[in-house]
Write a protein that binds this DNA or RNA. Structure first.
Lengths: 154, 154
DNA sequence: CTGACTGCAAATAGTTTGCATGACG
DNA sequence: CGTCATGCAAACTATTTGCAGTCAG
């Protein structure tokens, strides 16, 4: 079950934040996309409908959403300022296609064994982890041409 | 076994790159540190001895080293432009202390099972992964004060 | 109404590029 | 000696901040 723009809006309200058309537009853009989006990308997307929305507002909204844990960063490639809707209901990780940039997520993550082992070895008190897999998605495997047809890449 | 400045220098030479005093200084700074360093941090470190080294040179050297696979990025916190000496001899991952920023690494990583499972589930052809654990290192646990005594944090 | 939100513009930070000089091999 | 590397300055890009007007509640 995914988070919808409406649900996020409700969260915002319940936290005492206002639900403005701009924020709504940004929420729609983020929830509609399966990919990770940079601030600029979100801005462009949103601008199609709300021409005079400021990039600044996008930044501020992203910050807010990240703070509330509704979106999270994706670390694909060198780009570390891409954001993605979060699945709040469960722990999950990302699977990033190096061909087209699509992000899938998966939940079958059991690192607790490894976490314990590493913790024992190093003495660290581990409280979280970051795990991402990189590879080619089904359709990019068919195309199987490393260059060309890359949409997300800079 | 860690990579030393000397060894990296040898690699550079063998690849046809020149071994200049500036590069040497940068290599020493990187190999001497157990932490992840940002370009600016490297620059400052290096400057203590070589006052008129340019930040630009640091950037260019980092780029070169990353290209040769001698250093790698660390994705701790929001900062994604920190670099660390690589252990070229084996696959490993990072363990980042959220207290002081120290980076340890560990090698007991067996994700192949999970990789296969995820691959089967999603149809992705997985070729690499990024795994980092976050937590508190031994000495930060003793201090156990989440604020204060934080050196690496912005 | 009132304070939070927005948009603009300017400020700041981070990174890249062009070019003349200098040093490596 | 020729070429690659450096350092400076300027160009760019990405992000943050200040402020006055606007709008959600």
């Amino acid at each position: 079950m995914k988070l919808t723009a409406r649900k996020i809006g409700a969260v915002l309200k319940s936290r005492g934040y206002r639900l403005t058309p701009q924020r709504n537009a940004i929420l729609s853009a983020v929830t509609a996309s399966h990919d990770h989006l940079t601030p600029t990308a979100i801005h462009e997307k949103v601008r199609r409908e709300h021409k005079n929305i400021g990039l600044v507002t996008v930044y501020r909204t992203i910050e807010l959403l990240a703070e509330l844990g509704l979106i999270c960063e994706v670390h694909s490639g060198g780009n570390c300022h891409s954001y993605l809707l979060r699945r709040p209901d469960q722990h999950h990780h990302h699977l990033i296609c190096s061909g087209c940039g699509t992000v899938a997520d998966f939940t079958s993550c059991d690192l607790s064994d490894m976490e314990q082992k590493v913790s024992r070895q190093t003495g660290f008190d581990i409280n979280s982890h970051l795990l991402e897999f990189m590879g080619l998605c089904r359709s990019c495997q068919k195309d199987d041409r490393p260059e060309g047809s890359v949409s997300g890449a800079k």
